[in-house]
């Protein structure tokens, strides 16, 4: 009886946080849209940026049409998954990339004064408008990659959500290192980009120690390799493995952040959050 009541409570809290996240993101986007020119420049600029990135691989595959059985079409799918999961994090939880900065500068004080969860509040308080361009680009590239079916679309959506969650967890972990070492802002940013860096290349060329790094320190295997496999050919076991890793990394992220928060030293800055 108590167990049922407890799970209902946490479900209700989860729904409440989700709805609050949606409202906060909506507000951020609407306020950004007030500056129409800036909004459009950011979104279109990001689409051009993504086109530029995929162009490098278009040129590579012009010269080498198949790399170990990997074709440009496979790279397109990789890009689609990566741009969508990245954009989901940047749209809904851009603040996660400023955690290190906020910790170093003592700016978490602002969030500590509120009744809601500190990590959640610090993360959802910012939205990267340009990520809307990433999202749109990812969807278009997914359809251009071909062989689209209803099943594939559903898998793509699910996988994008799961990998976005994993990316978020990874960011929380690396940004939270700042609690323990004082300044880790740039290193955390570099680690995030290192993780993303794996998602541009044919996944079947990696082996040896590099593969081990992809399984552990920079979990690109779960965020890039497996999702690509499961969208290409549905496999429930792979999906389950991804889900388990997602939960595990989430719990790890919460644990490290909570541990770190105890080390947090408040600043005496008075900040105005805009």
């Amino acid at each position: 009886m108590f167990l049922v009541k407890g799970s209902n409570m946490s479900l209700l809290t989860g729904v409440k946080y989700l709805s609050l996240t949606w409202e906060m993101t909506k507000l951020s986007i609407l306020s950004a849209m007030e500056y129409r020119m800036s909004f459009l420049t950011q979104v279109i600029g990001m689409v051009i940026n993504d086109i530029g990135l995929i162009l490098v691989f278009f040129i590579l595959f012009q010269k080498f049409p198949s790399i170990n059985g990997w074709h440009f079409r496979d790279t397109m799918l990789l890009f689609a998954i990566q741009t969508v999961n990245f954009s989901l994090v940047m749209i809904f939880a851009r603040g996660v990339h400023r955690l290190g900065r906020s910790i170093t500068r003592g700016e978490l004080d602002y969030y500590l004064a509120f009744p809601k969860n500190v990590l959640w509040h610090a993360c959802v308080s910012r939205t990267d408008i340009s990520a809307i361009g990433d999202f749109a680009f990812g969807i278009v590239v997914f359809f251009l990659a071909g062989n689209v079916s209803l099943e594939k679309m559903a898998t793509f959506a699910l996988v994008s959500f799961l990998t976005a969650w994993m990316l978020f967890n990874f960011s929380v972990v690396v940004q939270s290192v700042t609690f323990f070492v004082g300044n880790f802002e740039e290193a955390a940013e570099q680690m995030f980009h290192a993780l993303l860096g794996f998602s541009f290349y044919p996944q079947n060329v990696f082996h040896g120690l590099l593969k081990l790094i992809m399984l552990t320190v920079l979990p690109a295997f779960f965020i890039t390799t497996l999702p690509n496999q499961v969208v290409q050919k549905f496999d429930l076991q792979i999906l389950l493995l991804m889900f388990i890793f997602c939960i595990f990394s989430f719990l790890l992220a919460i644990f490290i952040f909570k541990k770190g928060l105890r080390h947090y030293e408040s600043g005496n800055l008075i900040n105005v959050n805009m």
């Binding site: 080498f64 170990n68 300044n183 290193a187 570099q190 860096g197 060329v205 082996h207």
Partner: peptide, 28 residues
């Protein structure tokens, strides 16, 4: 940590490039 992170990124990238271009040259 911040200072060295850039260099570690360079190492990681050329590690990726090594595996990519070895396979690419071998395939060709």
């Amino acid at each position: 940590a911040n200072f060295l992170s850039k260099s570690i990124m360079v190492v990681l990238r050329i590690w990726i490039f090594t595996q990519l271009y070895r396979v690419t040259y071998a395939t060709a």
